[in-house]
Each structure stands twice: as structure tokens, then as C-alpha cells.
Design a binder for these strands. Sequence first.
DNA 1: CGACTGTCTATACAACTGTATATTAATGAC
DNA 2: GTCATTAATATACAGTTGTATAGACAGTCG
Lengths: 220, 220
Amino acid sequence: MPSIRTRTTAARRAPAGRKAAISRDDIITAALKLVGPHRSVSTLSLREVAREAGIAPNSFYRHFHDIDELAIALIDLAGRSLRQIIGAARQRATTERSVVRSSVETFMEQLGADEKLLHILLREGTVGSDAFKQAVERELQFFENELCADLIRLAEANGTGLYEPALTAKAITRLVFAIGATAMDLPRERHAEITEQLAVMVRMIVVGTQTMAQNRAIRP
Amino acid sequence: MPSIRTRTTAARRAPAGRKAAISRDDIITAALKLVGPHRSVSTLSLREVAREAGIAPNSFYRHFHDIDELAIALIDLAGRSLRQIIGAARQRATTERSVVRSSVETFMEQLGADEKLLHILLREGTVGSDAFKQAVERELQFFENELCADLIRLAEANGTGLYEPALTAKAITRLVFAIGATAMDLPRERHAEITEQLAVMVRMIVVGTQTMAQNRAIRP
DNA sequence: CGACTGTCTATACAACTGTATATTAATGAC
DNA sequence: GTCATTAATATACAGTTGTATAGACAGTCG
């Protein structure tokens, strides 16, 4: 039966035992070593990750309740990282045309680099548990929101209209991720070609939304 | 050492043994019972399918060399089935606007019906072996080609231009499948809403490609 | 009628999985 | 130094998987 003094000086959860020899991040790093173009997060086993991290299988539970919790952590990490990269690229571009171009190009560059993070985001959206898919969905929504704000900003700056900005952003985001997912498995020589195609496709959506806005303005 | 008479009367592979008690299709049917919104083809195990089909695990090998071969058969089946359904819907529609509408609506209807086939196509595109992904890619290409032909036909009939028909078809196909994949996990009440959104998105692409074609025609 | 041939089943095995239990080792508080 | 607390481990267990091997059954042909 614990004494009253169980409550330590520090208000919440004072570490009164052995120092942790391995951290959550170490496990995440180990998991990242295992995933790749031919290995999806959802097929990782607890034991496999533990082996790669050099710890006993059971030690995994000290840091993650589930293997799914690990997967969600990976997805969050991937989303945050990619949003930062794309965001930086977008801020460098000012005109609308170059925003499309530079975003698409940066996206495809990340695909070329063997950054596992993007692969995770692209591939794991359709498999795994519900919590799993919701995590990917959440990241995509972040992208949509940022893109939506950017589209509105540019439309105002350039005086072009915008039909349903939120839908436009959604269409662009989903299309880019879908095409990116297929490009992932293709040899790198074809990436340039796909970048061109992707830019044209996005252009279609942008021109479409502008034209539809104009037509609505003309005959309300 | 086999005698020369091993070659039977029938030129190729005469069935001279026990009649097959179970067929490839029976196994495919069993596998279809197992997949669904929360179960992907790539996670099916050989034993599981055999159990569902009521046969011994080893009997599986008589009909499929791999579990991957089964998966590819499922993908092919799903692709053929869906193409037929959508194709029929498209033939019923004549004007361009109704082609977009009815195709999208038929697509979403299929999603609502608990047809496992569409689920397979939507979900398995990004996971599994290479042969696996190629099978899905092949089916998507079929859709693209048929849609492309339809777009050209309609553009000529209506006198509207078309900027890069193949790219337009690709953009539409990928977008519809991407949105469909996310809709799959949502409650059915929201399907109507998503159908509307999807129709607008596709409209954006169509209007975009037409406008771009016009602009190209004006200043060549 | 045999004999053959192909289909299917039974049994078995090694590898792997997630997790339960008990044990050891390290750290900070007293 | 002692002791409680906690991290990490070792061992173990039941379940699953894919597949190898060998045998049992049912048709067909000579």
C-alpha cells in the first residue's frame, strides 16, 4: 500500500527511477529505417521494429501502446515535415503560375530524394486501421487549408476569381497526392515527365475554377 | 520414365484424372467474402482464404501459384466489372454535362452498394507487390483510355476544344478514384454531399481544359 | 478389371507474431 | 548505504503463417 509521500516534489510524474536508455524517437528512427518504397508502415511488426532498434520486444510497450500508435506518430511526423518544405517553397513564389510550378516541383523533388516520410504519407492513406487513415486524412486537410488560403491570397492579388476555393484546394491536393503515389514506384528518369504532366493538370483546375468564377460573375 | 504415350489424344493437357471439386472461381468467391471496407486484399492469408473456401491450405496451390496471383485476379475482375458499369452509364448520357454527372453518380452509387469490387480497386493501388500495383495501374489506364475517347467524341460533337485529352482523362480518373477512396470510409449519409463536390471538381477540370484549348486557339 | 493420373487432405515443421510473467539492473530519494 | 521505483530484459506460450511430404480418393483409359 503506497504511502502518502508517493506524491513527489515535482507536481507531475517525477522520474524517480532508472533513466530511460531509449526514447520514442529512437524507435521512430528505427521504424523509418525499415520502411521504404517497397515496405509499408502497416506491415511493420512490433518485433521487427524492436529488433531494428536493438531492444527487447516488450520494451516497445514502454513507449507506445500499440504498433498503430507508432504508425500514427510516423504519419504525423511525415505530414509536419512535408508541410514545412512545401510551405517554404510556396513562400518563395509570388505569382500564381510560379506557385503552381514551384509547389509541384518541390513535391516531386521530395519524391526523388529518398525521404521515406513522403512515401509514408502517400502510401498509407488507404490501408490500415481507422485511426490510421484518419491520421493521414488530417494531414491532407492541413495541406488543403494552407493551399486554400494561398489560393485566396493570390486570387485577390491578381484580381482573378475563384469558384469554391475550398473545393479547388481539395481537388488539387488529392490529385497531386494521387499522381505522386503512382510516381513513387516509377524510375526516377520519368519524374521530370510526370512533373510536367502534373503541372498541366493542376493548371487545368486553376483555369477551370477561374473561368467558372467569371461565368458566375457575368450571369448571376 | 514416362512412356511416349504420355501425350494423350487431346493435343493439350487432357484431363485424365479426378474431376476438380473446386474451381478458381470458388476461391475467388471465398476471397471476396473476406475483403470489405475494413479488410484489404493484401492482408489476406493463403490459409484464411482456404478456410473460407472450405478446402485444405495446400489445395490452394492447385489453382493459384501465389496468393499474389489471387490478388491480381481479384483486381482484374474488379476492373472489368466496374468498367462495364461505368461504360453503360456513360453510353446512356449524351451531353457533356450529363456525362460528367452520370459517371460520377454511378461511381458513387457503386461505392454505396456493398460491392467489394470497387473497394478492392480503390484501396489496393498503393500497397502490395509490384505486380500487384501494376495490375491496378493497368485497370486505371483502361479507364483513362475509355474516358479519353469519350471526351474527344463529346468535344467534337459540341464543338468545344480539348487541351491535351489524355492528360485531362488522367486527371479526372485519378481524382475520382482518390476522392472515392476517402469516401469509402465515410458514413453513407455523406455520399450525396461528396458526389456533389466530386462533380464540381471534375467540372473544373473540364472547363479548364476547354478554356486552355480556346486560349491556345486564339493566340497560337 | 487393374493401372494410371491428377485432385484433394492430413500431418508436420520451422518461422514468425503479439503478449504475459518474472527477473535483473540502474537510478534517485532518504 | 538502503530502499523504492522504474526501464529493460529473458523466457515462455499460444496462435498464426507458408509450405514440404506423403497418402487417400475418384475418375479415365487401356
